[in-house]
Amino acid sequence: SLNLGTNFEHLEKLRNRSTYVARSCKEIIDRYNEHEDGLYFLTTANGMVYQTFCDMTTAGGGWTLVASVHENSIYGRCTVGDRWSSQQGNNANLPDGDGNWSNRNTFGAAEGATSDDFKNPGYYDIMAEDISVWHVPNNVPLEHWNLAAILRYHTETHFLRLYGGNLFQMFMQYPVRYNVGSPGNRGPAIPIVYDHGDKESTKNLYGPNPRGEFEPGFITFRAINNERAAMAICSGVKPVRAYNTEHYCIGGGGYFLTDQCGDFPSFDWDRLGREQGWS
């Protein structure tokens, strides 16, 4: 068919990418002057080769996809698929849960990042300065991630320099662990620059009650709720007034007092006809 020629050239172009040697998407830009979004091969310091998605456009580009947090069942309570909290049940004897925020375990594939959890070696291997976050509807294919996203933003303060250069190192300093501290012991809250959405649209993604206790325009790390459960990331917001963070922060340790354990811990609190306003 007529398409065969173009398709072959396209695949040849992709094949050439496998000759690149770089540890991050930023290095691909700097060394090879490549500016096209898509999948690239990267190499760790130890020589492990893996494939991931590069966003080469946002704010000048060179953003490496290192992880995705996907909710396979909002009704699950630290069950199968809750890799970013615990797959071993809500258990105070496992305060770290699966521990994936601060270990070298990897899982999933870049192309499937909107259909299941994903974590690659870049998560702990890349020395980075900033973070970018995309909220992409489940099961959207890679070529539409950017357009389909309901929220996109990035940081510009180079804050990761202060915390060891990546989230792996940061969460060593601020463990995502039950009973590690009280709400006042949260990790850093960093101002964000919006690429899609704004403060108002961010607020509206969360329930009416959470809107009264957080400030939009930030990304917060290692939040702790009133019951001393730890959460990894409050995306787009900073808890300021009260600390029911289980309703708007994701990832976590292995135990939540009111059985709200999960990757999106208690985002669904009201859905089953309980109290109103948190969902």
Partner: peptide, 15 residues
């Protein structure tokens, strides 16, 4: 949180 939010994956990037 909104259904929009719970039915979206959170993608994390480094630079």
């Amino acid at each position: 949180a909104s259904k929009e939010m719970t039915e979206a994956a959170v993608l994390l990037f480094y630079r």
